[in-house]
């Protein structure tokens, strides 16, 4: 009698796919190891020295940190707000149910993808070159960064709305501005606020290091204390960042839960 069991193919029998994947990963690992020179010695005493210095923070430095840390929060707030304002029209133009023209939508989405490919610190380096050292460079970098992120979150939110109200308003003769204001905005407003807060959290975290490249805020003090080998003060800066990030995350999480 002929067997009814399905025959296993050669590649399935010997797990060719899985084996090849493992071999490939190992090859890439070795290649990366070669490329980055990971065999170099690790000098533990240097590393321990830094760590030991960091565990004895210079508490008197706290007073010097307060103003820059507030400036960091201001930068994050302004950057997120500006980025959001620019992002709203772009997110409408990139949403499938608002922008019916596929070519225009594709162009806008391509542009947004390009913007999103740039990391925050890279933007900071560019803006320091453009507007000069100071918090304006940080605001510029955060504006572009949050623009890229928010526009994607927003257009995905817009695409999930119920089409009924849009159709009803269009049928009643509303123009596209009226449709957006009365059919789209009320449906996505809470989600928008929630995403705004989420981006603000990320921007607060990002803005604390932007100053390292001269873009304002507390990051400047990171680079100063590190280059003077005052790791006891670096520890204070890091602790301050930790406190601010935890507070902002906590507030933002509570607000987002209230919005949901």
């Amino acid at each position: 009698m002929e067997s009814l069991l399905p025959e296993r193919q050669f590649s399935q029998k010997w797990h060719i796919k899985g084996l090849l994947t493992v071999v490939l990963v190992i090859l890439i690992l070795f290649g990366s190891g070669q490329m980055t020179g990971v065999s170099t010695d690790f000098s533990w005493d240097q590393f321990w020295q830094i760590l030991i210095k960091m565990t004895q923070p210079d508490w008197s430095y706290v007073s010097a940190i307060v103003t820059p840390i507030l400036e960091t929060i201001q930068m994050a707030l302004v950057g997120t707000l500006l980025g959001t304002i620019i992002a709203v029209p772009f997110s409408l133009l990139a949403a499938r149910n608002i922008m019916k023209n596929a070519v225009a939508r594709g162009v806008i989405r391509f542009f947004l993808n390009l913007v999103r490919a740039l990391p925050d610190l890279l933007l900071a380096a560019l803006f320091v070159a453009i507007v000069g050292i100071g918090p304006m460079a940080g605001v510029g970098a955060l504006t572009v960064f949050s623009f890229g992120m928010i526009s994607k979150l927003f257009y995905e939110a817009i695409e999930t709305i119920d089409d009924g109200p849009i159709e009803a308003l269009t049928a009643a003769g509303a123009n596209s501005i009226q449709t957006i204001v009365f059919a789209v905005v009320p449906q996505v407003f809470n989600q928008f606020l929630s995403y705004f807060l989420y981006t603000l959290e990320i921007n607060v975290r990002a803005s604390t290091v932007l100053g390292y490249l001269g873009a304002g805020g507390v990051g400047l003090y990171l680079s100063q204390t590190l280059s003077l080998f005052r790791y006891d003060r670096t520890a204070i800066v890091i602790l301050a960042i930790l406190v601010v990030v935890i507070i902002v995350d906590g507030i933002s999480n509570r607000l987002r839960e209230a919005l949901a």
Binding site: M75, V78, L81, V131, G132, P135, M136, V139
Partner: peptide
């Protein structure tokens, strides 16, 4: 936001 904008020297662009 008024407080945030007050801390940023918006005119200080090269």
């Amino acid at each position: 936001f008024a407080w945030a904008f007050s801390g940023i020297p918006l005119a200080s662009v090269k």
